[in-house]
């Protein structure tokens, strides 16, 4: 059963007066971010989007999350067109930092406060999540007292607190160092494997994509659409050891094969842009 269905989603942005862009060689004052995005996501699936920078991945996530409307086409969530943020959706976006005036515990409670969950229940849920991420001793800490990795765990916990059916994650680990990043990937996959949450996860790291995903969807250079979907045939439950297996390398190879051409194409476009010096 498909929980999310994107049908021919297109998105154009009007540029500011005087700005222009080349779409397939034609100069225009509108930028084509998405050009016919079709994607079906199964319930409980972990889907990873990879694609060159500027290919519209974040724009697509915004549309799925009801934060922005498509210019044409439609995204269905549980068979209903998305036109506003839904209670069924959780958000882990880079720009959504923790609230600096709230403790770790209280940050996790945030999403529950507007949904009429009573205080004791909120605290219970938040504590469970903190312990799941190994942060029980840090519940009374403010964000500035936590490391980057801890902050990101709390941000994920905040999104999970509302028990979303769909979790949208836009490069959640991009700002972390390589080691912390692997640890968080391991934790995320462990926690996710114990739920039936559907995840759409955007990353630039092929290793991350292969390690986490059931399927990796490769997005073309702008205007973004799905180029190819690669099934990751690694067994679950997965743990960190799998990264060094030959199956992992084979999957990695497949994803890179699909992605390479698009990354080159996107780079080519920048090189053609006026003012670009290599």
């Amino acid at each position: 059963m498909d929980i999310i269905v994107a049908k021919d989603v297109r998105k154009k942005f009007k540029l500011k007066h005087g700005q222009q862009v080349k779409n397939n060689g034609i100069i225009s004052n509108e930028i084509d971010a998405l050009g016919g995005f079709d994607l079906n996501i199964k319930k409980g699936e972990f889907l990873v989007l990879v694609g060159p920078s500027g290919s519209g991945k974040s724009v697509f996530l915004d549309i799925v999350g009801g934060l922005s409307a498509p210019t044409s086409g439609v995204v269905y969530l549980d068979n209903k067109p998305v036109d506003a943020p839904s209670e069924k959706t959780g958000y882990v976006f880079q720009q959504y930092a923790l609230f600096p005036w709230r403790t770790a515990l209280s940050n996790i409670e945030f999403g529950l406060e507007s949904r009429g969950v009573v205080k004791e229940e909120r605290i219970k849920i938040a504590r469970e999540l903190l312990s799941l991420f190994g942060l029980s001793d840090f519940e009374d800490r403010y964000p500035y007292q936590l490391s980057g990795g801890m902050q990101q765990r709390v941000a994920i916990a905040r999104a999970l607190a509302t028990k979303p059916e769909v979790l949208l994650m836009d490069e959640p680990f991009a700002a972390l160092d390589a080691q912390t990043r692997e640890i968080l990937q391991n934790e995320l996959i462990r926690i996710w494997e114990g739920t039936d949450t559907t995840v759409i996860f955007v990353t630039h790291s092929i290793d991350e994509a292969v390690f986490l995903a059931d399927r990796v969807a490769v997005v073309t250079a702008r205007p973004g659409k799905i180029k190819e979907i690669i099934e990751i045939d690694l067994p679950r439950p997965r743990n960190g050891d799998i990264r060094s297996s030959s199956e992992f390398a084979a999957n990695r190879h497949k994803v890179w094969g699909a992605l390479k051409a698009e990354v080159n194409k996107a780079q080519q476009e920048w090189k053609l842009a006026p003012g670009f010096t290599d």
């Binding site: 934060l67 943020p85 958000y91 959504y96 609230f99 945030f110 999403g111 406060e113 507007s114 949904r115």
Partner: peptide, 15 residues
């Protein structure tokens, strides 16, 4: 982003 996140989670104006 704070305001956006609050509206995503359904905070009303007073909250």
């Amino acid at each position: 982003e704070y305001v956006e996140l609050a509206s995503v989670y359904g905070y009303n104006r007073l909250k």
